[in-house]
Write a protein that binds this DNA or RNA. Sequence first.
RNA 1: GGAUGUUUAGCUCAGCUGGGAGAGCAUCUGUUUGACGUACAGAAGGUCACAGGUUCGAGCCCUGUAGCAUCCACCA
Length: 850
Amino acid sequence: MLDKRYDPKKVEEGKYSFWKENDYFTAGKDKSKPPFSMVIPPPNVTGKLHLGHAWDTTVQDITARYKRLQGFDVLWLPGMDHAGIATQAKVEEKLRKEGVSRYDLGREKFLEKVWEWKDEYGRNIHEQWAKMGLSLDYTRERFTLDEGLSRAVKVVFKSLYDKGLIYRGERIINYDPVLKTALSNIEVEYKDIKGKFYYFRYPIVGSDEYLIVATTRPETMFGDVAVFVNPKDKRYKHLIGKKVINPANEEPLPIMGDEYVDISFGTGAMKCTPAHDPNDFALSNKYGLERIICMDNEAKMNEVAGPYKGMDRYECREALVKKIEQDGRLEKIEEIVHPVGHSERSHTVVEPYLSKQWFVKMSPLAKQALEKSTVNFVPARFKKTWVQWMKNVDDWCISRQLWWGHRIPAYYHKDTGEILVSIEPVNDPNYIQDEDVLDTWFSSALWPFATLGWPEVTEDYKRYFPTSLLSTGYDIIFFWVSRMIFDSLEFTKESPFKDCLIHGLIRDAQGRKMSKSLGNGIDPLDVIDHYGVDALRYFLTTGSAPGQDNRYIEEKVAASSNYLNKIWNSARYVLENLGEDFKPSEINFASLEPVEKDILVKLNKTIFKVSQYMDKYEYSMASSYLYNFVYDDFCSTYLEMSKVSLQSENKEYAQVVKSILYYILKDIIIMIYPYAPFIAEELYQATPNHLKSIMLESYPKAHKLPKCDLSDVTTLYKMIQDIRNYKVTNKLAPNYKVKLVIETKKELFPSFKDYLAKFSFAKDISVCESSSSKGIKFIYQDIVMFVEDDISDEEKEAKKAKDIAYLESEIKRSENMLNNPNFVAKAPKEKVELERAKLEENKRRLIELK
RNA sequence: GGAUGUUUAGCUCAGCUGGGAGAGCAUCUGUUUGACGUACAGAAGGUCACAGGUUCGAGCCCUGUAGCAUCCACCA
């Protein structure tokens, strides 16, 4: 027998290993089933999983578990990402605390340390997956640095290189001086920062005048090669061709004209620093200007900065401004707020920096992706986000000055510098391999096909690729989704997944992003500890609309837990009543009493709706239909009704009711199972006639049921509610014994009176065609009920007046609609008929009431 | 500057193809029924941001306005 209380800890214990040991997560065991495949977005091996992961993976697990019960051969492939920058940074930080740098260790030793880290954190992630109950096929687990993926990366690199889609070039890149590596454009976050706008006087050569030039980054002045003005600018037009003196180093700079300069911004005169600014770099290309780098790879000033050599960029800025001020060339300093690029990883200010890097040429790949992608985004609007980005994408900087990652398979000839790109290691001592590794996303972009064996055409690849669904948050559409799409189209000629389900981000109760600096992060394990994983899963995947963000609100997790407790207890009631040797019998729908028919019709409708939304991945909508059925139709209504029939004299019918309870309970358990697999398995195994695991069950199907008139059941429920309501508003005790007189010409179904008696606490119920009762009158379809009690006449009058007012307003509403010829002519016939029927009914009621 | 979302009960949010506004929590009454007090029975609470339009009919569709949020691009 089940415990009186639902105890998540007890319920969850041992279930995951039970499933795993029985191999229920392993795909491909029955190839007669249609395949359904997903790959997990591989989490970084850097650390713990947060609520965002919990959300994302629960969505996938719900899908996997639902599809299995629907008869699919489900593959959900797990794996992790080496996360180059993030992991290396963490390991370096750890070493720094021990007083060691990666250079002390050397490349090989350092990588050993990182692998140790990977093993440790990989174990953590496995534990968390198990806690979350994810039905992952561990026999197919992959890692972005494993042999197969490494080979795939090299094959892709070489192929793109051979096609001219990968090139090495000198460009302005975003440089992270803390992590000492280049970044791609999307790894830079722009934040509005308070800064200073320095206005300096540049003496004009051969004149006593100044040209005032403003900058936010004075330290880059050592890399200046010109000052630009707009040729249309009347103030400065005459100066083009002359020279000014750079106040930083007294070097003469030509004044040049270009329409790029915004006349209205700053002073209209702009310094040009090609090696430290992408726009200036473009100008230098146009005019063949020199590119002077004035910083080293830690953003310290180099020899170009003369006396400032060795200073940090900000130190230099301060010193230089002071010097220029002393020289009398500081015009003014303006406080401004301007966007400044920060490294997504180290959060330091990114330095635009000229250097030689590897790039993926994006336009041909983007064009192909836009033309050929068949990915169906859910919700559809995210396709626009993707298209927009894809249309404007820059070339992708893929080289990183790190050690942890896929080393670039390019080799340079010692003497000639000739580049050799090779999948196999080059043993010729004349060639030296590139020191850099590839951007992490370069390998994750291959995830859906490389994990299935590509470039080999394996059995798995044939069976499971393209994958059926990819689920992820909208924040990584650019980083990952778009790159999987263009790489997949380039290398497999197919889109990597049929559907791409995009969900929002999890936020704190105030709607803020969860972050370390705010300290508002919630550890999923803490939540699980309090409420159980099923409640967490239910909370995460319900109550929010597709693609919207979701706030973490503890009360909602508690509410989810209460709901599961409700299911638990309804199961307890049903199971207690079934008894020891219960065997479900076939249900003959036609022979059932109306109350039983009614609940089966409602169940059927619920199954239909729930499946319909499950199929669309709308787990929130699906759950709300189930919730309403469980609470209102099943627990609050039918369970209560069943108490009458189970205790009645009619033992034969009581058996039928038991079977019905059994079937409904089973369907509820199976429908809640994808959301809350632990409690579902526990309850399932407590039901009679069960299989070894709920994972072997099939999902309930909606049936075609014969049409039947259940209006008397509806009336019965309304009567009960009206009587209860009436007692409360008249301050009668809930168990106050009323006397009921029912007028009807219909024959009520046999147990009608029994049900009514039980729930109204009536001491007497009489049924007749007409009566002279003075009780309070309630009018239903074809039935009138009088409630007799000791209430004063005034109160009765008040109730009557209220009812009349309501009916009159309803009649007026209907009449307005029906008197509108347009409504009658244009609205659907059923709608008009319905309205007409309501009007007639209400008119009749009004007459009876008066 | 461009794009996307959002504005519904005190709070957090649902609301499917347009057909009498819903949930959870909070509030107020009252508890009795051999599943459940993590509960039950009830109640109260809404000009669906605003202004137009389409329609017989708009929370939902269209146009505009305002607030909030996010993303992209950016000015030295």
